[in-house]
Write a protein that binds this DNA or RNA. Structure first.
Lengths: 119, 119
DNA sequence: AATACTACTATACAAAAGTATAGTTAAATA
DNA sequence: TATTTAACTATACTTTTGTATAGTAGTATT
């Protein structure tokens, strides 16, 4: 019996595209990632500053999310060799360029609101 | 006592930008939205077809997510006036244009992999 | 010496998201 | 008439995500 393929062969590049999209979604998913990235973009560097910049975030969540972002290569945690130690967070190159994704989300989101709510 | 503002005034457009990004993230968030959208892009229209196209999705989740996507204006549910009724799902205009967001995610995701894993 | 600040961690809990499994309704087919 | 198919829904459960609250270690300040 012959196997009839009703779909085209999936190329390797398509597979890595799916991975790439999932990577991006993971970086941005959850309640706090975007506010944290925004706060870092705004220039906040220290734990306390970020925390007081974001309404209602608990230190537990901030700590967890910063670790996530660090592991994902979006944020750098810099420990200054001072007394007392000063710890600063900043965006990596990848963390900075994610604006492009955010821009396309803004564009689509606004157009979508027009099409959906505006109609 | 004078209030010293240490941050620039936030403009209304920035607020709606945040809303727009959140709209976009909501549309794409969760385990199944992307596979479903991909399946619809691929041309699947019927519940069973989408279900058998996506590994391990339960009818409960497919049903829930399709409703979500319909409510969010990404998917249309078309009930054909036949016997038995034929139900077809398809992407709205917004649903189709979300490719632009996905493209920028692919681009960022691939570059990010290069920068992070490749280094 | 007592208090306060920074940068967190620990524990317990609640809510949201997802899974497993079975059942329903209406029509079509054998 | 019995079975099958489509398009779901219902119930119970597990996992993940997020919240609430308190506590800690090291230093600095009063």
């Amino acid at each position: 019996m012959e196997v009839v393929r009703t779909y085209p062969k999936v190329k390797k590049c398509q597979v890595s595209y799916v991975l790439a999209v999932n990577d991006t979604l993971n970086v941005l998913s959850g309640k706090w990632k975007l506010p944290i990235i925004a706060s870092l973009f705004y220039g906040n560097k220290r734990f306390k500053d970020i925390q007081s910049n974001i309404d209602n975030i608990t230190p537990r969540m901030l700590s967890k999310e910063l670790k996530d972002l660090e592991m994902n290569g979006i944020v750098l945690r810099i420990v200054h060799d001072t007394r007392p130690v000063l710890i600063e967070y900043e965006l990596t190159e990848s963390g900075k360029t994610i604006t492009k994704v955010l821009d396309s989300m803004v564009e689509w989101g606004l157009k979508h609101r027009e099409l959906t709510i505006g109609s």
